[in-house]
Design a binder for these strands. Structure first.
Ligand code: FES
Ligand code: FES
Lengths: 145, 145
DNA sequence: ATACTTAAAGACCTTTTTATCCTTTAACGA
DNA sequence: TCGTTAAAGGATAAAAAGGTCTTTAAGTAT
């Protein structure tokens, strides 16, 4: 698909954390993985990466877990995507040419730009927190019921 | 990226064939792969699939090779994508939920629809032949120079 | 202090994708 | 009809993605 599996899980985990954690309210890896319907250990590995990149906060020890602070909830989703999948989907050529450029464009280049910038815009203007709102109001979901 | 490597090669091969073959004018696998900058044997595999699905024509034996007839040149690029990668990118959930639906949408669903339908439209309205034109006129390319 | 809980880290395994090679089959020309 | 040629197809290999498990160490409560 569009994003790697790891990236899909990352976005879902981040949105879930935004809706269910905060300063002083932590969530453990078992809860996160089961609530977003993702493999536990794999999710842990992904959260490690996000934590190292400061997109997610964590606390070890008793009653430890993961959480998002106010700043992190305000981050655009594109930050998560780039942290996990890199920026190739936003900058690379859709037909796999070594680089996407105006000077030597592939046959799809011009039409592609519109779609790609639409995607970029969507992920830039959507913050993790804003997406979490629809989750909290029950109008969106993170796993099949 | 957006498409699998196999799919990228498939699209490039199809566009190249549209520009460089026709009834009576065949192109061999070595030419195709070198002109689109793709691994030879892998390209052969992919063309086998496209041939079996009648998106590409082939001729065995002496002076054999691959070609596209008029009808095949008129096919939309989306046919190639679906033949190789399936329709998940057009119908599946962007966050990897088991299914994309209005009833149980993921938090990105609504914004995603626009991007996805933009992509679908782009690939549906672009025929292989039409993309080949920009190649023939030298205003687009299929590999890094 | 220490015992316990939990995230961090990393080794390991499985599956899928990407890529190569080699044998078989079919078409065609001489 | 024989030999050449090129696609078809199967089998294999390497690499990347996806997923699991075990060990380590940080922090907390007691
Ligand atoms: S060159 Fe292919 S998308 Fe820009
Ligand atoms: S449910 Fe996620 S894109 Fe439609």
């Amino acid at each position: 698909m569009m994003f790697s599996k790891a990236c899909e899980y990352a976005i879902r985990a981040a949105i879930f954390l935004s809706a269910n954690s905060g300063d002083g309210v932590l969530v453990g890896i078992s809860d996160i993985s089961s609530e977003i319907g993702a493999p536990k250990h794999f999710t842990a590995k992904i959260l490690q990466v996000l934590t190292r990149k400061r997109l997610v906060s964590s606390q070890k020890g008793v009653n430890g877990g993961f959480y998002l602070d106010a700043v992190q909830k305000g981050r655009p989703v594109i930050d998560i995507v780039i942290a996990i999948d890199g920026d190739n989907i936003f900058k690379g050529c859709g037909l796999g040419l070594r680089e996407c450029s105006e000077k030597e464009p592939c046959p799809l280049h011009h039409k592609f730009l519109a779609v790609r910038s639409g995607l970029t815009q969507l992920l830039t203007e959507s913050t993790i927190g804003s997406l979490a709102h629809s989750l909290e109001s029950g109008s969106s979901f993170l796993k099949k019921s």
